[in-house]
């Protein structure tokens, strides 16, 4: 764990006053967020809340209108190697002519730099990553032949070979089968056990409590952030999702005071 001189741990990610606008329409307003090292954090919010945009803004994939992002106490640009990224599965063309192993090897490109090709060492690492997600048998498979869950696991393996300590994942559980979900959760816990930090955009409210340590509730602005017990409360969810939240019943794991709305 990286610490300051004082001995206090540096936050994995620190977002200050982040505002992002597409054209003139702001999609994120003045976000402050601190992600602690070594925890699993979920970013939760309704559709159009800017969850994906937040991750992309941290990674400088979308321009920021204002604000600062620090990773492990350094500007993101200087700490890029510490951050791995798992984009949404639907963001690429899975009919691309390439194999599973080849996709995973892309995770090593950043480390390799210009022109150098992945060698035997990188292949070994990629195979290990595939083993971790239970996909080693598919290494030579063409990627169009994978199911949705398998595609997701390949993307996860690609992030694993990045050898980063912070992992930003955009909806890794979206539309995957139960087996994949279990495999991903296992990997997340393994990462946490070795001190890594994971931030997931997450949709399924009912699993937040089970999978994550901390949560950030987002709806264009930051509604609440912190340990799940403190932040993932019904009033906060109401704030994030608007008034109509019958579906939230029981999601937070608390009995609603007074027996419901």
């Amino acid at each position: 764990m990286i610490r300051r001189e004082s001995g206090a741990p540096v936050p994995a990610i620190e977002v200050n006053d982040l505002t992002v606008a597409y054209g003139e329409q702001p999609v994120l307003w003045d976000i402050d967020l601190t992600i602690r090292q070594g925890v699993l954090t979920a970013i939760v919010g309704p559709n159009g809340a800017g969850k994906t945009t937040l991750i992309k803004a941290i990674l400088e994939l979308v321009p920021r209108a204002a604000g600062r992002v620090e990773v492990l106490g350094r500007p993101y640009r200087d700490a890029r190697g510490e951050v791995a990224y798992v984009p949404q599965r639907g963001s690429v063309d899975w009919d691309f002519p390439t194999s599973v192993l080849d996709v995973v090897l892309m995770g090593t490109y950043g480390r390799l730099g210009w022109i150098r090709r992945p060698g035997r060492r990188e292949r070994r690492e990629a195979m290990q990553a595939l083993e971790k997600v239970g996909m080693e048998a598919f290494a030579d498979r063409q990627i169009s032949q994978l199911s949705g869950g398998q595609q997701q696991r390949v993307f996860l393996a690609r992030a694993l070979v990045q050898e980063a300590r912070i992992h930003l994942m955009d909806e890794p559980f979206q539309g995957v089968d139960a087996r994949t979900e279990k495999a991903i959760v296992e990997v997340l816990r393994e990462l946490r056990a070795r001190g890594d930090t994971v931030v997931c955009v997450h949709h399924a409210l009912q699993t937040v409590r089970e999978y994550f340590d901390e949560v950030a509730l987002l709806n264009v602005r930051m509604i609440a952030a912190g340990p799940v017990d403190e932040a993932f409360t019904e009033p906060n969810l109401r704030l994030a999702y608007g008034g109509r939240v019958p579906f939230l019943q029981g999601v937070t794991g608390f009995e609603a005071p007074g027996g419901g709305p």
Binding site: K56, L59, E60, L61, R80, G81, V83, Y85, P87, S91, V92, D93, F96, T98, V103, M106, Y109, G110, L112, W114, I115, R116, R117, P118, R158, Q162
Partner: peptide, 22 residues
Amino acid sequence: ALFWKEFKLLTFDREFGVALGF
């Protein structure tokens, strides 16, 4: 041939390439 890896990255997953710092 020289920039094979970079071109492949661009074609398959451009955003991931940006995130890698290319």
